[in-house]
Design a protein around this nucleic acid. Structure first.
Lengths: 187, 187
DNA sequence: AAGTTCATTCAGAAAAAACTGTACAAAGAG
DNA sequence: CTCTTTGTACAGTTTTTTCTGAATGAACTT
């Protein structure tokens, strides 16, 4: 008995469904400091039934292999994707980390703690520069401005101090005892 | 008695100190979905002794007034900057929100909850599309793939559900009872 | 060793984003 | 009402980012 529905038609619908998700993901990954095209690549690998080679990604995404290489490395560094080994397969194989808590929380923590550290450092440097100038200058108006700047920076510093502790909450996994992981519905 | 230090020299040092902070800020604000140049503008207004007009910003940053207008609106929408009124002044005046917890937490919450909502929506849509296809297709191989996709999406959905609750923690201010605000040193 | 098969490097092309000047409209002053 | 002053829209330019194909070299095969 022949099929009622066309296979290619159904494959198209499958692709369209997957694309709905992947496109949205691509639009939002910049918050994790990842480029849209790397986000699309993530989606592609995510839906793949088995680990993918660079050539397969290239064909699937209709983009150059060079881009696949570049983007997969970005995902690899962010720990969102991992390399897997299969006996007899020479090409590099990649799959996405199954655990979204791991992959996304991790990249979040990494990027934000970097940024927070750098900002704290910058505030510290600025304060040092200002304090030195404060001691050396003889112009009252300069001293006044420095005073104002220093107290503004204190406010900012306090915020970043707080933010650093918040990031720690995620890094240590303590956050999960406050907001528990959700177990996915049909497991 | 004449000054030992040159005024312009000291002003330069002041500017350099401020710039150390502003430049770093500009490099990192993309995590809040704000462009570097808007970040630099924020820094400029932040250090200003008094509220600034678009023309002043333009002069200070050596950029076009058009850009100031565009960027200040971005900051305004993110609630990082507010418009203030002074009697007799026709030009629009802007200052930064003093409370960094307010301005930065707020923009964080806004951008992340938007992103989370959109992703959750996308997952929901994708699941609907897949479920419909599941019911209508007659190809076993398609059904198998859909099955796999659905369980992968469950995992992702659980993560976003969790993330939404985390964002709520910030939105409600509950986070401050877990990680208390730091009071700035010399207040 | 010679010949493949890969991934990656690099320089240039293509695309996207940021920035600017002109033009215009709204609001205020005389 | 006319003449300024001020903010913004828009089109075009500049700058930055992303993408690609050819070249390279490493690793594997025979």
């Amino acid at each position: 008995m022949a099929s009622q529905t066309s296979l290619t038609e159904d494959l198209n619908r499958l692709a369209a469904a997957r694309n709905r998700f992947t496109s949205e993901l691509a639009k939002n990954v910049h918050l994790y400091n990842i480029k849209p095209s790397a986000g699309r690549l993530y989606g592609t690998v995510f839906f793949s039934e088995k680990p993918m080679t660079l050539d397969e990604m290239s064909r699937e995404m209709e983009m150059s292999k060079t881009s696949m290489s570049t983007n997969i490395r970005e995902l690899l560094q962010a720990d969102m994707v991992e390399q897997v080994w299969e006996k007899g397969v020479r090409k590099d194989l990649y799959k996405t980390e199954d655990d979204w808590y791991k992959s996304f929380s991790n990249v979040f923590v990494t990027r934000w703690s970097e940024a927070t550290e750098k900002n704290k450092k910058a505030i510290c440097d600025t304060k040092t520069m200002l304090t030195e100038l404060m001691e050396e200058t003889e112009h009252e108006e300069i001293r006044e401005r420095i005073g104002g700047d220093l107290s503004k920076l204190d406010e900012a510093e306090a915020y970043y101090q707080w933010l650093a502790e918040v990031v720690d909450l995620f890094e240590s996994g303590e956050i999960f005892s406050i907001v528990p992981k959700k177990t996915s519905g049909n497991k």
